[in-house]
Amino acid sequence: MAITAADVSKLRKSTGAGMMDCKKALTEAEGDFDKAVEIIRKKGQAIANKRADREATEGVVLAKVSADAKTGIMIVLNCETDFVAKNESYVDFATSILDAALAADAADLDAVKALDMNGQTVQDLVTEQTGVIGEKLDLSHFDKVSAEKVVAYIHPGNKLATLVGFNQADFDEQVGKDVAMQAAAMAPVALDENSVPADVKEKELEIGKEMARNEGKPEAMLEKIAMGRLNKFFKESTLMNQAFVKDNKVSIKQYLDNSNKGLAAVDFKRFTLNA
């Protein structure tokens, strides 16, 4: 049967595949639209398998909060080249996955991949887009923060994003943005000293002792010196104890409390493709 331009246009709109690919699929399917969609999808799967050994190290990191601002979700959709990562349709595709994850209140990465979007799972759509774009795509990372209020920040370029949860819901939006940007810029390893994993503390203490020993300090003083250096580590590397980048005379903890009595960050997530 004859394949019309309208048929090709409809298939292209439905799948995002190229015009010639759509025409070939419709011809192979003898005009059967659903069969043609299946052919396009199978082609996507074939290309995905063919490119499975390729490195998908570029991509986008996106974060967004729910309408009530009590939940924030972050996803990473990888591709092979920065050229594709900067493409508007690619960013839109990643954003549609993020929106679906947020709407479903997804719990983890597997849950996001299994979500239904327009009759297909997210994973199937990612595979399909591999065929359309011609690069390996990988939905590789998921983070979630729930709190009285969550603030999201995406650094220009979509390579770095943060989510910060707070213990109060009513405070100046700029304050939340300042702390989310602080987490992006200063890359804290934990929320506060209590959130630093025990093995990290032990490692820092051991390093502090060894440094003091190499400096010729008495053995009896090593523990005290190492503790001092550990406290310096907390100040430099934990979000609540870091000096506020806009005013280094106060810590983030002090900045928040000065902004709203008792206001504190209770959780944060940070991801960058540039590490």
Rank of each mutant, 00 (worst) to 15 (best):
M117H: 09
K209N: 05
E204G: 01
M181F: 08
E215M: 14
T27P: 01
K42N: 15
I154L: 08
A275T: 14
G208W: 00
L222P: 09
Q45R: 14
A185H: 04
K70M: 12
A180Q: 04
E236W: 09
C79H: 02
K261Q: 14
E236S: 06
A5E: 14
F83D: 15
D105H: 12
L205N: 02
S140V: 07
V196A: 02
V91D: 04
E30F: 10
P197R: 06
D143I: 05
Q120P: 00
R213M: 06
D110C: 12
S259T: 04
A183Y: 03
L26D: 00
G18K: 02
Q254P: 05
V84T: 12
G72K: 02
I3F: 13
A107P: 02
T272Q: 13
N167A: 09
E28F: 06
V151C: 11
L263K: 00
A52W: 01
G59C: 05
E28W: 10
S237K: 13
M74S: 09
L77S: 01
L102A: 10
S66W: 03
D257I: 06
T27S: 12
D99V: 07
D92P: 02
S195I: 02
R229W: 02
Y255I: 07
G31A: 12
A2R: 15
R213C: 05
T127L: 00
L26I: 05
K86F: 08
E210Q: 15
V122K: 00
I75F: 08
V151S: 06
E38S: 13
N214G: 07
L98H: 08
L115H: 12
G208C: 11
N78M: 04
G228D: 02
K224W: 12
L230W: 06
E215Y: 11
D143F: 10
I3K: 07
L263I: 08
G208H: 00
A190I: 04
S66V: 11
M1I: 09
T27N: 07
E80L: 08
N158I: 03
K249C: 04
Q174W: 09
M181K: 05
Q254N: 11
D21V: 08
K64C: 07
V175W: 00
T95N: 13
D267L: 10
A69F: 04
Q254K: 15
A220Q: 13
D7H: 10
D92V: 11
A265S: 04
M227D: 15
T4Y: 13
K232I: 08
D116P: 09
N167S: 10
V112S: 02
E206R: 14
G208I: 02
A46W: 00
N87A: 15
V126G: 01
E135D: 11
D34Y: 13
F271S: 01
V245A: 14
